[in-house]
Amino acid sequence: MRYVKWSLLGLIGLFLLTFLHYTLPQHDIVRIVGTENRRMEIGENSWFFAAPDVGTASSTSRDIFFINSVYPDGKTMEFRNEDTGWGWPPYFKMNSFSLATEAKELVSTKDKPIWVSVTHYGWRNQLFTIFPNAVGLKQVDGPDVTIIPWVNIVILGFALVLAVLVRRMWRQFRERMIEPAVIDVQQSIDDLEERGGRAGERARGFFGRLFGRK
């Protein structure tokens, strides 16, 4: 049972880490090389796409803004630019058109680069055709600038404090409620076994006397 317990806890921990890695904001320093508006059919990978832009009709086929970029080492990255609206993740992004305009203003060439910090969530996977969703753009001084993830620090810190409080509450609840109840149940079982033993002894004595008289 110990292996089952730790395996289950490991799976829960892995799920939480995966969920947080996908949902929490990340910052990539890139050079924007172009933008486009692409018509896409959203199918089995719809889990990794946001809802249609606020105010538009829901459909499996829709136009999606994309931001094409290049990392300082030359690797490419494509970000989608979709509204999150009031849904999940709770970025409350409703400015995909404005962000597309900002991206066009920040397009630069290799000779005269403009480095941009792209705040996004999600993953890039070519096999399943999924893209991280850009939620903010900010021009930075260079490719080596350090971005401190204050939002992640606050959220993870709050989650850690909450986890510690929940653990303490659970331990107190277990000590005050569960353990005494378990002890009472065990005591009741012991009492029943003791009574049953005494009853059995009396029964054996009765039948012994009964058969002894014959």
Score class of each variant (00 low, 15 high):
Leu106Ala: 06
Asn125Arg: 14
Val135Ala: 03
Val116Cys: 11
Met94Ala: 08
Phe92Gln: 13
Asn133Ala: 11
Pro89Met: 07
Ala134Gln: 09
Trp115Ala: 03
Ser117Ala: 11
Tyr121Lys: 04
Trp86Leu: 12
Asn125Val: 09
Asn133Asp: 14
Ser96Val: 07
Val116Ser: 10
Phe128Glu: 15
Gly85Lys: 08
Pro113Ser: 04
Phe131Arg: 10
Glu105Leu: 01
Phe97Asp: 13
Trp86Tyr: 10
Thr119Ile: 03
Lys93Met: 15
Ser108Phe: 03
Val107Ile: 11
Ile130Val: 15
Ala103Val: 01
Ile114Ala: 07
Pro113Phe: 04
Ser117Asp: 15
Pro113Met: 07
His120Gln: 07
Met94Asn: 08
Phe131Ala: 06
Glu102Thr: 11
Glu102Trp: 01
Phe128Asn: 10
Phe97Tyr: 07
Ser98Arg: 02
Thr119Ser: 14
Ala134Ile: 09
Lys93Leu: 13
Arg124Tyr: 14
Ser98Asn: 02
Pro89Val: 02
Pro113Leu: 01
Lys93Asn: 12
Leu106His: 05
Trp86Val: 06
Lys112Leu: 11
Tyr91Ser: 07
Ser117Asn: 15
Asn95Ala: 02
Leu127Met: 12
Asp83His: 07
Gly122Glu: 09
Thr109Tyr: 04
Gly136Phe: 10
Ile130Glu: 11
Lys104Met: 08
Gly122Val: 07
Thr129Leu: 15
Gly136Asp: 11
Trp115Asn: 02
Pro113Arg: 03
Asp83Trp: 09
Thr101Gln: 14
Trp115Gly: 01
Trp88Phe: 15
Thr129Ala: 14
Ser117Phe: 00
Lys110Gly: 00
Thr101Leu: 12
Gly87Tyr: 10
Asp111Gln: 13
Ala100Phe: 11
Ala103Thr: 01
Pro132Asp: 10
His120Glu: 06
Lys112Glu: 14
Lys110Val: 11
Phe92Arg: 13
Lys104Val: 01
Trp86Asn: 14
Asp83Asn: 15
Asn133Tyr: 09
Gln126Asn: 13
Ala103Cys: 03
Glu102Val: 01
Phe131Met: 09
Pro90Gly: 02
Ala103Phe: 01
Lys93Ser: 12
Gln126Lys: 13
Glu105Arg: 05
Thr119Asp: 08
Trp123Gln: 08
Phe97Gln: 10
Ser117His: 00
Ala134Trp: 08
Met94Asp: 04
Lys110Cys: 01
Phe128Arg: 10
Val118His: 04
Pro89Thr: 02
Met94Thr: 12
Ser98His: 01
Ala134Tyr: 09
Pro132Asn: 12
Thr119His: 02
Ser108Val: 04
Ser108Trp: 04
Ser98Ala: 02
Asp111Tyr: 02
Arg124Glu: 13
His120Arg: 07
Tyr91Ile: 09
Gly136Cys: 05
Thr129Phe: 12
Ala134Val: 08
Lys112Val: 13
Gly87Asn: 12
Phe92Leu: 15
